[in-house]
């Protein structure tokens, strides 16, 4: 039972960073939702805000790591061009998928969307983390900003979710191994 170097990086990209992202999202969403003056005492706000900042900052940092590892480490293995005359495409996932009309859309649709939309997550998550860092406890008084932060936070998760779901399905059809 062992993992190749490529499998290890694919695992870090999809499972390790993906799990951390999910964890940060769950905590951040709950924190943002309930960050209202009418729900919390002054002490409660002061106690909760640093945790919210850690959660949103962690989500931003993790999403940057995930897209950078995915784009610069895992993706080149996925898109590598096989040498001329190659008939076994096992080590060339993109070529393997494109070799059959029944699997070509895993590349033409799923991968084409995933590799781009994933980059929305760090942009949006960074804006969210900045808003939380900038306002701190004052965010509870700024309902307009808090609602916008929630929308961007959820959209960052949706973008990462699309990328993660297609990543898992593509890996099932043609693993980077």
């Amino acid at each position: 039972m062992e993992l190749t170097n490529r499998e290890s990086w694919a695992l870090i990209h999809g499972m390790v960073l993906g799990a951390l992202f999910l964890l940060a999202f769950g905590g951040g969403l709950a924190g943002l939702w309930s960050l209202r003056e009418k729900f919390l005492t002054t002490e409660g706000l002061s106690e909760r805000t640093p945790r919210l900042l850690i959660g949103t900052a962690a989500m931003a940092i993790v999403s940057w790591f995930a897209v950078i590892v995915g784009t610069w480490i895992v993706y080149p293995w996925y898109r590598a061009t096989p040498p001329e005359g190659t008939t076994d495409f096992t080590d060339f996932p993109r070529s393997l998928l494109l070799a059959s009309p029944t699997t070509a859309d895993w590349h033409n649709f799923a991968m084409e969307w995933k590799e781009h939309v994933a980059w929305f997550a760090p942009f949006l998550a960074t804006a969210v983390a900045f808003a939380v860092a900038y306002y701190g406890v004052q965010l509870a008084r700024r309902g307009d900003i808090r609602r916008a932060v929630l929308v961007f936070f959820v959209l960052a998760f949706v973008a990462a979710g699309i990328a993660g779901l297609f990543g898992a399905l593509i890996t099932k059809a043609a693993p980077v191994a």
């Binding site: 942009f123 949006l124 960074t126 004052q138 916008a148």
Partner: peptide, 24 residues
Amino acid sequence: VEGTKPNGPVAAAFIGAAVGCFVL
């Protein structure tokens, strides 16, 4: 809003993120 900072820097961050997505 009383007792809070001006929102300009946060509005800039939100539009900046959206510009990044649009440019992509």
